[in-house]
Design a protein around this nucleic acid. Structure first.
Lengths: 248, 248
DNA sequence: CGTTATCTTGACTGAAATCAATCCCGGTGG
DNA sequence: CCACCGGGATTGATTTCAGTCAAGATAACG
């Protein structure tokens, strides 16, 4: 999977920059990142971006679309670890730890910025501010995983689903994927089940119940949150902070 | 909880440095870290190191002992997110994201190095190598969380317990807490249950079964892994790589 | 129009939770 | 020296949430 020869999108005109959610760059930072960027990669929904155990030479920033990280057990049981939206970094582990212990797949058609793993060291050496951003992103991922852990470990099926959907629409909103009050998410029930440690059947039943109560709506490969408030009550959540975030 | 006035342990003579598992420091790095270190904190088992929602001014490296990170739900359900052993960093999120969304507690009597949150920026600006190490630690934490997630989400009770115990003794070994072939871990069954998303009762029964088969042994607040091999088979695990790791 | 991926439902099963006692043992105070 | 206490560990009985099995229904797609 070779990246295309040149960056098609100039960082200067990166569509992500236009959004308030992302922090601004200095001229120098912009130049560096532009040079750091090896190219762009467009893949279709369902494509594997990298697989567990690989020592990919690249890391990626999602430019457009959705992706997800996951792990498999020998017998095929799958656990989805997290989702990646525009602005999110994928494959940092390979640059830092040397290898990857999870796989990543395109959830929707996807456009990725490709960076060379080896140059991450230059980034740290030359741009402490960007290095800090990378660490910011890693810490944030950690926080999202913490949140998933308590969900899967301690919440009931309804609570888990409510939490997942709310977290996703919030992240979608932050990433500028606004779509009226309720955001469409390109998920199948398989994805939801595998994200939450539930079986497909039980996920379906739970979702069905939520739909009957008018909290979410449903079409193949698309969820639609109708009543964020009520759903939030079910989820038992309060957090909804926002602040400008970095990305590279 | 104020740190003691001065670092009691000179970084130069830091006991962790003596172990092969940790990477060496240059003279400059050593001086910087020595200065970065604000003091030392010794707390008794059971003490809360920081609580969810706080914006602690400090971050910590575990010098000796065990700690754990956890989250609580409104009604008291608890999920333990991860454990921290000597060399592990605690509270990075506060320095990077501005606040903490989890709590941390001393599992055993604990000795911590205390660093000032604000100076993390200096660290990034002055020592790219150390900044990289911080990111290394964050990525590693992420990987551990990934591993927990698939455990809780997709593994059975026996598999979860086997995996947790093996992961802990391996980490203990890496951190130099070797203790013959089988390492003692200061865990109660409560901790195990809350780490794995299981009830106390079920955890006890499962553990009991493992003990009956001679795979683990048990005393209040102490587990003892007797048959790592057999347990590993149950856990369905293979990973057991080792490489020098950083810490600050 | 078959084909294939999703989504649904019903019936049954089962792993793990919950409820409820006990037990064990180290520490403490009388 | 011993009764009392409290944190942990155990165990039995019962319940339930979620998993598994099986079969259709739907709907996008080539």
């Amino acid at each position: 999977m070779a990246p295309s020869p040149a960056g098609l999108t100039k960082c200067e005109r990166c569509p992500l920059r236009r959004q308030q959610a992302f922090r601004g760059f200095s001229r120098d930072e912009l130049d560096f990142v532009q040079d750091f960027k090896q190219g762009e990669l467009e893949v279709a929904a369902g494509t594997t971006i990298y697989a567990e155990g690989s020592e990919s030479a690249h890391l990626y920033t999602v430019l457009a679309g959705w992706a997800f990280r996951y792990k498999l057990l020998e017998d095929g049981r799958r656990q989805i670890l997290n989702y990646a939206l525009p602005g999110d970094l994928l494959g940092l582990q390979t640059a830092v730890l040397g290898s990857l212990e999870h796989s990543a797949e395109a959830l929707s058609d996807l456009k990725l910025c490709v960076f060379e793993r080896k140059r991450v060291l230059d980034l740290f050496a030359q741009f402490p501010s960007l290095a800090f951003d990378v660490t910011w992103l890693a810490s944030r991922e950690e926080r999202l995983l913490d949140e998933s852990l308590i969900s899967i470990g301690r919440r009931t099926a309804v609570e888990r689903i409510a939490n997942l959907l709310l977290a996703l629409i919030e992240r979608g909103r932050m990433a500028g994927l606004e779509n009226g009050n309720s955001l469409r998410v390109p998920l199948t029930q398989y994805h939801i089940a595998d994200s939450l440690g539930l079986s497909l059947v039980h996920t379906n039943r739970t979702l069905r119940r939520l739909a009957k109560d008018g909290l979410v709506s449903w079409r193949p490969s698309e969820v639609d949150v109708l009543e964020p408030g009520e759903l939030g009550r079910l989820a038992g959540r309060q957090t909804d902070f926002r602040m400008p975030r970095p990305f590279i």
